[in-house]
Design a binder for these strands. Structure first.
Lengths: 223, 223
DNA sequence: TTATTATTGTGCCGATTGTAACAACAGATG
DNA sequence: CATCTGTTGTTACAATCGGCACAATAATAA
């Protein structure tokens, strides 16, 4: 609950650093990073102190050193393997989502009650019958769950029994976990509802106050 | 930044209440709600006090009264209209996502550089050329952005110029906002990375401590 | 060598969050 | 009517977070 924000910031730093490095930079200052991800420079420095990343008092931080440290903390650079359960519309879309390849995440298989006849994107889609075997032999630890709401809880139990430790649930129902595991719920409906609420408040305020001051809210993933 | 969690809790209460009511319940206790969404009963009571929802000291809260209040706060029950820009895999998947219909959100149109010849789900998909006109005539205020990363910033500007006030961005790049608007970033890659990190820490800890205590993390949308 | 300057590292503070504990109270029971 | 039980409403509190400001310090210039 509390260090999630912290870790997310670390991941954002990493993204920015990779970008900067690819542009030829070698060092970075706390205020660069702060601007890039929309927080104060002081907070950046505090975060970096927390991961024992020390910079040069005049020349900022070494991008390479920092990336090295972040990679060690966040799980390294070798792509981590996850599976996807529930190859409906959303599931199939995620299977060939552009973002994953670049970010060290590899979806190695999809599972569905009725697997399609041909693989769509080069990622094999298996029948649910083979779920446990696959998890067992590949020692998969993380799964994306994109099954219909009604099936979500049951599939979660099955995944956990099979050895999965982390689940990213997309069904619009808060999944809790039972045992030693991590479950994150990505509820897109909630996101949108939230957005409507904020936009409505924005317009209300403007209507009330006439010309409103610039009011700009950009927020990160609820992740 | 700060009341986002609060509002998200309100929306979660609403979901649970709707479910409970459909099961025939009429009243609910703070600890029911707390259990349902994984927080303490005290926090539930505080939230309810904050929205001036008062319960009966013995009989808990009236579900109907609470839903009424929540609906007023969160934007009522009439479905709110949003559009979706970028009808690639993810975009099309969202266009027929089960969750939206039930949750008072209505995607009224999709837009793409090359709109498909036939509507896939009954939701019309238009060419990008018609974007501004549509927004203008329908007075749309919220958009889902599922275009490729490279185009995200440009399309955002276009949307904002056209009058959109809230954007839910799915491209794996932190979009900031320029003007009076709200932008939320749903970064699925970050979500997964985060999950890997947590699972790894979990396993590390267990390896270190031998038999670990039950350690169960279930968290809501980062959103 | 000395002064200057830019940037880090950190101690402190205010704000906010969620928890714990308890008093007030409504209804049930006898 | 009196008691008792269970739930709310509220107050106090501990933890944490992020911001500010400033001392420490490394590079540079004179």
């Amino acid at each position: 609950m509390v260090r999630k924000d912290f870790m997310l910031r670390l991941m954002k730093y990493k993204r920015v650093l990779i970008q900067l490095r690819s542009l030829g930079f070698e060092r970075v200052f706390s205020n660069n990073l702060g601007d890039a991800i929309g927080i104060s420079a002081a907070l950046v420095r505090k975060d970096l102190a927390r991961i024992e990343m020390q910079g040069n008092r005049r020349g900022g931080y070494s991008i390479d050193a920092m990336l090295e440290r972040l990679n060690r903390l966040l799980g390294g650079k070798e792509a981590q393997e996850a599976i996807l359960v529930g190859c409906g519309n959303l599931g199939r879309a995620l299977l060939n989502h552009e973002a994953f390849y670049k970010e060290g995440i590899k979806l190695v298989a999809g599972f569905d009650l009725v697997p399609p006849h041909s693989d769509i994107v080069g990622i094999p889609i298996y029948s649910m019958d083979e779920l446990e075997d696959f998890i067992n032999t590949r020692q998969t630890k993380v799964a994306l769950l994109t099954v219909p709401t009604a099936a979500a809880a049951e599939v979660r139990d099955r995944l956990l029994r099979a050895g999965i430790r982390g689940i990213l649930n997309f069904a619009p129902m808060e999944l809790k976990c039972t045992g030693d595991c991590v479950i994150h719920n990505v509820n897109i409906g909630l996101e949108i509802e939230n957005l409507f609420f904020l936009v409505n408040s924005l317009e209300d305020r403007e209507a009330r106050e006439g010309d409103s001051p610039v009011n700009c809210l950009s927020e990160g993933t609820t992740i």
